[in-house]
Design a protein around this nucleic acid. Structure first.
Lengths: 224, 224
DNA sequence: TTTTGTATGTTGAAATTTCAACAAAGGGAA
DNA sequence: TTCCCTTTGTTGAAATTTCAACATACAAAA
């Protein structure tokens, strides 16, 4: 377990916790670690929500697929990030998304009730963790606002530019790499892959952006 | 203040609280009540996030408007519901939405810090309220998943049907009233108002639905 | 190096949306 | 009731997306 301490210390759920405390807390929470191959699901649409997951290594994607097979990309998760916490805290009986490993990856799974309910040992950390969880879930809310900001645009061009500008802002650079391939980016923007490729090609020819697979560079930012 | 106790007792933030406790807590939180006319803003895009709002009477809409004036409807708020809590808890410096009264309405405003930080009087309720807040914010997350479920559909027809089926499910009836007029519904579905009206007209002629202003009735549900 | 499978780019036709403009209906005030 | 203003419905052209199909590029494996 100790080998994951570096990631866990960065995880906002365990904010301000020392290593010796972490050891104690993880035991109290009955935390366990699982490994996943690329494409494997750590959480499946329709399952009951019980666990909070923490990405330790690799990365995951939160995806929803509708009745007709249309995929919608919700988010990409990197080490230190949580998933499932909103469903577990809200007590939903069926999660509306799947969480898939986008490469070989490991997660720590914790029963959400163990976090939210004080333990018999009168463990001191629960209250702080509930507060941390509140901030994490609130931050996820902002992520949704961001996705809506992008996907509420009406054209592929506008969606793509809004997304790229947001990424550039977050990376603090006009050159950056996104965590999605073309199909996945199309699923995030809620547009057709071929149309997205066409739009990227057009912007490339116009000299507005440079795009090599997942690496983008914006030449003419029209910051709004 | 007492006249609002009925609403406040239904509010999940004050769950399981008796009237006499409520009196004490509201004083501790320094809660204040404000009134708004139809169209007035209780919160404006770009403002810092400080307050948690609780709808007491009337209703509000959470709206975001982009640079080009395109409006996006995020949610409708009825008495007992909260707003602003995610931004305040996440500590954002500029809220990405506006909250507008859709009719004459009243809200209770509480400084979020007062909720999250224990008071000098060693008031016992903060911990319970933080936990309540966590569940509220988690539930809001589900609301976003629902909006994405609807708006990720590619055609006006699919969006409208997905929305109406969801409403029917939530009302527990195939006949119900939605909190939006045509323009607002179009803003929620992220489509053009004229196209939405056309689609509603088509479904009406096909006998799939009946629609009179905000009142809808579904005749042929194809529950998926 | 060659093979093979996946990811990306391209294209044209069909379907759909947007846009602008106007018509019709509804509700409130005079 | 009439007038006025807002909401909703309708329409056709232009713009855009979707869809299907295929070409090309890339990367891993043989």
């Amino acid at each position: 377990m100790e080998k994951y301490f570096e990631v866990l210390c960065m995880c906002p759920l365990f904010r301000d916790m020392a290593h010796w405390e972490l050891t104690k807390v993880l035991r109290c929470l009955n935390a366990r670690v699982s490994s996943f191959e690329k494409g494997e699901a750590v959480m499946n649409e329709g399952e009951p929500a019980k666990y909070v997951g923490i990405v330790l290594t690799g990365s995951f994607q939160i995806v929803r697929t509708d009745f007709f097979g249309n995929r919608s990309m919700i988010a990409n998760l990197v080490p230190g990030e949580l998933f499932g916490e909103s469903f577990a805290c809200a007590g939903v009986e069926a999660v509306p998304v799947s969480v898939l490993a986008s490469e070989a990856a490991e997660v720590m799974l914790i029963d959400c009730l163990k976090i939210c309910h004080s333990c018999s040992n009168a463990c001191q950390f629960h209250q702080q963790m509930i507060y941390n969880l509140l901030q994490i879930v609130a931050a996820k809310n902002l992520m949704f606002h961001q996705k809506i900001e992008v996907t509420s645009k009406r054209t592929t061009h506008e969606k793509l530019m809004a997304y790229l500008m947001l990424q550039a802002k977050q990376f603090g650079s006009l050159e950056f790499e996104i965590p999605y391939d073309r199909q996945e980016l199309a699923d995030y923007l809620e547009v057709e892959r071929s149309g997205l490729s066409a739009e990227i090609g057009k912007l490339r020819r116009q000299g507005v952006i440079e795009a090599d697979r997942s690496r983008f560079k914006i030449y003419k930012p029209f910051d709004v």
